[in-house]
Design a binder for these strands. Structure first.
Lengths: 339, 339
DNA sequence: TTGGGTATTGTTATCGATAACAATTATCGA
DNA sequence: TCGATAATTGTTATCGATAACAATACCCAA
């Protein structure tokens, strides 16, 4: 019943050539005559041959597997990028191994990387919110190529990012253009790279317009934290607009404002960040910054393959431009409407 | 610079034993004296030895890798289960390989399975919406153990499911208890297993209460499809409650009703299914059926490991009970309030 | 003290591929 | 037609682990 699977030797015997020739056919070597090639291919098909990846990996040191390390693959962003990477990888015959970190500190990430390296992946894509301090030491990679996505890259390590800074700036500039002068910000956790970039973008836009910094609160990316942050903001300030660091928190913001009978956008304008699928259907539809996670994933894989193939690339750090999506949660400031 | 990694032979030489003894220490064989064991362990640590998984796989035919095949790992449900499986797998030293299918038809799924089998996984977890017709032929698995999650299992194939039928029934019974008599349903795509189960649960609850079937519409799980479905429903019927087959579509429903100035829950009650993180923060908070995806993932892995270890299990098909979460999108029917 | 069993260690074969090199056959110009 | 070179095919070694079997060392009872 349980027969040993077909090996290269079986194919070789069946097609009357050496196993090496079979190997050459398999790997598309050029110096194989059309005749033998077709003979071997026929034999492979006939016998239902499938190469043993373990044997190949042992022999040539390559696993045709890449590892993706992610912090929380349930969130929309990471999940989308993972999906994109996986699809792109499949296209080129690579397999994806998934690993998850428990936290975002350097040691948790290092552990995750070590696991992947140990499992023998040819390259790694990091979808983790690296902060400035937590640079991965080269030695944990022990030579495995690596690309950073949506986390801070540094000189030696290639990266693909949506330009968080510019995205935040666009959001706030839009609010300014609408006439708002007191623009609050609900930021993500202070240790996260994306959070700090978006915060800086907010500051920059305000400074450029010679406006004072609005009130600032911190959340943890969750709707719940947005819900509570906005309640404090409302109590403490007279902001007419909030730039919220992600859509999930913005969701909580809209909820709280609804409960407080503060009208959006009439009384206060809200802008989010991410453009999750739900954003369009919130009440009101959420104005936000769209990140093209799909492109990020695809580019990350491209970059990684270049590195694996030892190719050099000019663009070591790729930045993708985000897009402002205008919906119904923003409007000109009330005083302007009255004019 | 590029030194060959430490192999078992290096450790053997360093600790003055045969490589086989090193192997025994590595695999916790019993017949190794404490003295040699500690000597070898010290050597491994000293040299920074890490076993070569490819070599091991080639030798003993096991990869300590399981494959997860998913239709769309971006959705909340699949993503959560994937996450759970991954975490549980890591705990027991297994690696997770991810594969995605393009469609939900039998051939797409078979292709995905074939890919995983070919890559050499020890077992497979299917997070795909298998429909009744699309039974996977045994031969594509070629002996690889497999567990089905959230798809229809059949006799020979073990499965873990949230009891969709009971969940739907609970939802509709709750609406009935609130006094509703015309209860519509917005279903998922007709080919999906979950969709049909939820639809049946809806019917069953109505039949049990001797009520007529309410109007029925089909969506594609997306908020957008819910948005359009409810608009038609409102036009064509006088339903006072809708049971929507998932929260994403319910999101669209709430949006449309808001635009149409139909008050929820005063004019119409809405119940969803899934309890995605956003549900609590919708306006109004969405009454829904919570599925414990985490448990599903964990149980699926347990079942799979049993099968890999050839253990037999009494419970071949595991059903998890879902939970009704009552929020603000449901209320007693208006006429009852007037009483 | 010795025989027999058990506990511990070692030796050799094996998994299924690719790498490196060797051998054979074609091909072409002088 | 010959020899040189290129194209094609084959042989053997190798990757790094485990399996199967062989060989010691150790222990206890007779």
């Amino acid at each position: 019943m349980k027969k040993r699977p077909i090996s290269m030797l079986d194919v070789a015997a069946y097609s009357q050539v050496s196993h090496q020739t079979v190997s050459r056919v398999l790997n598309n070597h050029k110096n194989v005559s059309v005749k033998t090639r077709s003979k071997v291919l026929a034999a492979m098909k006939e016998l239902g041959y499938a190469p043993n990846l373990a044997a190949r990996a042992l022999s040539n040191g390559k696993t045709t597997t890449i590892g993706v390390l992610s912090y929380n693959s349930i969130l929309f962003g990471p999940a989308s990028m993972l999906h994109a990477v996986q699809n792109a990888a499949r296209e080129i015959g690579y397999t994806v191994t998934l690993a998850t970190t428990k936290g975002v500190d350097e040691s948790a990430i290092s552990t995750g990387i070590r696991e992947l390296v140990q499992s023998g992946v040819d390259g790694i894509i990091l979808i983790t919110p690296l902060t400035k301090g937590s640079q991965i030491k080269e030695d944990v990679l022990s030579g495995t190529p690596c690309v950073i996505v949506e986390g801070e890259g540094w000189k030696e390590m290639p990266s693909v990012n949506v330009d968080q800074f510019v995205g935040a700036q666009k959001a706030v500039e839009y609010l300014i253009a609408l006439g708002h002068t007191v623009i609050a910000h609900i930021s993500g956790p202070s240790t996260w790279y994306e959070a700090s970039k978006r915060r800086e973008g907010w500051k920059k836009a305000l400074r450029n317009a010679r406006l004072e910094l609005g009130p600032l609160k911190y959340g943890d990316w969750s709707a719940n934290s947005g819900y509570h942050a906005i309640r404090e903001l409302i109590k403490e300030s007279n902001a007419t607009a909030v730039f919220v660091a992600n859509d999930a928190m913005a969701l909580g913001v809209l909820k709280a404002l609804n409960e407080l009978k503060v009208k959006v956008p009439k009384d206060i304008s809200v802008v989010g960040f991410d453009d999750i699928p739900e954003s369009e259907f919130l009440i009101p539809g959420l104005t936000t910054i769209r990140q093209d996670f799909n492109s990020v994933g695809n580019l990350a894989l491209e970059l990684l393959m270049d590195r694996i193939g030892k190719k050099k690339r000019d663009s070591f750090h790729i930045a993708i431009q985000p897009e402002l999506i205008i919906r119904k949660s923003t409007s000109p400031i009330a005083s302007m409407q009255q004019v």
